[in-house]
Amino acid sequence: MAWHKKPKTNLTKLRLLRTFVQFVMFILMNLTFFLIGATWLVLPVNMPRSIFSSSEGAFFLLQRMLSMAIVPLIPLTTFFLFGAILGRFFCAWACPFGLFQDILGYVTSWIRKYEPTQETNLNSRQFGEFITGATLLFSTFIGINVALGEKAAVETAFDVFVEQPWAVLSPSAFLFIAIPLLFWWGGIENFFIWDKFVVIDIIFWFRLFIFVFAFILVIYIPRGWCRWFCPIGIIMGHLGKNSLLGVGRNISKCNHCGLCEDVCPMGVRILSHPAEKVRSPQCTNCLDCIAACPEDAMEIKFL
């Protein structure tokens, strides 16, 4: 397993570099907090827009636009363009929720991690497929009602789920919006007086449950949320499976030691994929396999 084995020096350097890039991207995506300003930039990352954000995650904008009965051209553009060229690259190198999972995995590296079978990994993506499909269907349903002039009725019926249904339940929204806004409005001295700033109802407790579930999942399964539940990962996995950027294996150098599979944070069975290029919906182009390979058999492929 990736985290309990002492990584090689190259792998350590790569992971430090990736963490640094992730932090820089997190700051750039939240420039508003540093009073620089919000932009129309939409990225394939798991981060909803808040007052701190200078950009927005494409899936959250997709929900919002469908609910407003607007054809979501901009988020679809993001998915198609980035997916075709880079695959799930943003998952490994830019996503703030991915950064959160990596840091959580690192600080709990003393806890034994589990690596599910490939069958479990691929079958469990059905959870994410369900979340993605249900969210898009529901948002489309809301949008149709809005277009028919029934906006008030759906707002009464579905309350907070009308605008961005998945954002209400998403652990990334809880982490990047709910918690920072508590500090923004109340200050630390009021942080525990939640009922002043947060509606404490069944939805709140369900959100908290999902966040705690994701928290515990990621401690035991590296990037567990990315593997099985993230809607952005599901969409980018489908579109990015045939991306121009990928990793391949030089058969003449590969000795099938399996170290590439051991260090893969997404549990991709690299050796079972064609050597030309790993075409897994789980591969995030993190390049850990390239850094870890003792024979330099793994290589970046483009085109």
């Binding site: 051209l73 901009i74 679809l76 553009t77 998915f79 198609f80 363009l81 997916g83 075709a84 060229i85 579109l239 499976k241 045939n242 991306s243 121009l244 290029k277 075409r279 085109l303």
Partner: peptide
């Protein structure tokens, strides 16, 4: 696979063009 990637990319460009024009 590369052909699929180019088709996906082309669709993205078309969507971007429509988004800008609208």
């Amino acid at each position: 696979s590369n052909a699929k990637a180019f088709i996906t990319f082309s669709l993205g460009i078309i969507l971007l063009a429509i988004a800008i024009s609208t």
